[in-house]
Amino acid sequence: MRIGTLGNGLMAEALAGQWVKAGHDVIIGGRDPQRAAAVAKRVGGTAGSPTEAASYGEVVLLAVPAEVAVEVARLVPPGRTLIDCTNALDHRDFTLAQPATAEAINRAVPGVQVVKAFNLAAETVWQNPPTGLGVPICGDGPLDLVAELVRDLGCVPVAAGGLVRAKLLEATAALAIGIWVGGGDVRGMFPPLAEAFGSVPPGQS
């Protein structure tokens, strides 16, 4: 698969590196050519401008600060799948700083399939993802391409509903980060479903 990244930071490097190992062709797109080239060299991809990366292949990873996400996403041509891994956090109290980024992008770039994924873990997780880690993905169209990229990390794609539910993924990230910063153990929040809910989903008993 041909993949472009919009951004050349830690998230882009971690995910791109895993996808290159899985045999995909990745172009790292960044406004700073030297930095993009350095990241591309480390992961085994190629470097280019944001416009080149946005047009490179079937899938584009949007890995830029949330405050510029919509602006940068406008570079993506129709027909692509755009993975949004951003979280619009207010770091003063770890709440959402604005409505769900994925929904704002979806309104701004018609013709592009926006999928929310990879936003619940930091780049250190994606550098060496634990086998079997569940990765929620939200989107309104077919999710096959993104599900394949999740499996290529040794992880399990979890269909989490349409794009309208992306705000819940961002809110979950805000909650978890706030708890972690406060010294809490986020890992202990989600026991196995059978223990947490029994055999019947909550609200359906």
Rank of each mutant, 00 (worst) to 15 (best):
R107T: 12
R107Y: 07
R107P: 04
A108K: 10
V109S: 02
V109M: 02
V109T: 12
P110G: 00
P110C: 01
P110A: 01
P110D: 00
P110Y: 00
P110M: 01
P110R: 01
G111K: 06
G111W: 10
G111D: 06
G111C: 08
G111S: 09
G111Q: 09
G111A: 08
V112D: 06
V112M: 06
V112S: 07
V112H: 08
V112Y: 07
Q113H: 15
Q113W: 04
Q113N: 15
V114I: 12
V114N: 09
V114P: 03
V114D: 05
V114K: 04
V114A: 09
V114T: 11
V115N: 06
V115C: 05
V115P: 07
K116S: 14
K116D: 12
K116T: 14
K116R: 13
K116H: 12
K116W: 07
A117V: 04
A117F: 00
A117K: 02
A117N: 03
A117R: 01
N119Q: 06
N119P: 05
A121N: 08
A121D: 00
A121P: 00
A121Y: 03
A121C: 08
A122L: 12
A122T: 14
A122F: 12
E123S: 15
E123Y: 15
E123M: 12
T124G: 09
T124N: 13
V125S: 09
V125M: 07
V125D: 05
V125N: 09
W126G: 06
W126E: 04
W126H: 11
W126K: 03
Q127R: 15
Q127V: 12
N128E: 13
N128Y: 00
N128A: 15
P129G: 02
P129T: 01
P129D: 01
P130F: 02
T131M: 01
T131K: 14
T131L: 03
T131Y: 01
G132I: 07
G132R: 08
G132Q: 07
G132A: 09
L133K: 01
L133F: 08
L133E: 08
G134W: 01
G134T: 05
G134N: 04
G134V: 03
G134P: 03
P136R: 02
P136V: 05
P136I: 04
P136H: 06
P136D: 08
I137G: 04
C138H: 06
C138E: 11
G139M: 04
G139P: 09
D140W: 05
D140T: 13
G141H: 13
G141N: 11
G141K: 14
G141M: 09
P142D: 14
P142F: 00
L143F: 12
L143C: 12
L143K: 15
L143A: 11
L143M: 14
D144E: 15
D144P: 03
D144Q: 13
D144S: 14
D144Y: 09
D144C: 05
D144K: 11
D144W: 08
L145M: 05
L145I: 00
L145K: 14
V146G: 04
V146K: 02
V146A: 05
V146C: 04
V146H: 05
